[in-house]
């Protein structure tokens, strides 16, 4: 492709081919990144610290949000059906269970959806 004869490679010593040097650089970079983007083999490990913080921030809110939704559904059903405290208590526990299962799924299969998807391949 390019001749590279007039490139300022005086300080590089031996004048290697440009493509060769590019390949070496790419290999070097890939080994330094540790298969972050290229490999994509390990979805379990967060790719960077920023993503790790992102996951950490998600954990807490997932639990609280499910709890609140369970509570709200129970309260609404109670208002509707006139069974004052019971459905709220029942759905509070459902909410807790949903929150725990959300966090479990989030922690187990990092790239999986938070909702109903379970980390496949490991269990069955």
């Amino acid at each position: 492709m390019t001749d590279g004869s007039k490139g300022p490679n005086a300080d590089n010593g031996a004048g290697e081919d440009f493509a060769e040097r590019l390949d070496a650089l790419k290999r070097d970079q890939a080994s330094r990144l540790g298969g972050g983007k290229a490999g994509n083999a390990a979805p379990e490990a967060p790719e960077s610290s920023a993503q790790g913080i992102g996951y950490a921030l998600r954990m807490g809110t997932e639990m609280v949000a499910s709890l609140l939704v369970g509570l709200a559904i129970g309260y609404g059903l109670d208002q509707w059906l006139g069974t004052k405290p019971w459905l709220m208590i029942l759905f509070l526990f459902f909410g807790m269970a949903a929150g725990v299962s959300n966090v479990y799924r989030l922690a187990n299969g990092m790239d999986m959806g938070v909702g109903w998807r379970r980390p496949d391949k490991q269990d069955e």
Binding site: A65, L68, V69, G70, S101, V114, W116
Partner: peptide, 12 residues
């Protein structure tokens, strides 16, 4: 539980 966890998405 699944329905609650689905509905909790917009909240979280």
């Amino acid at each position: 539980i699944e329905i609650i966890s689905y509905l909790s998405r917009p909240v979280s």
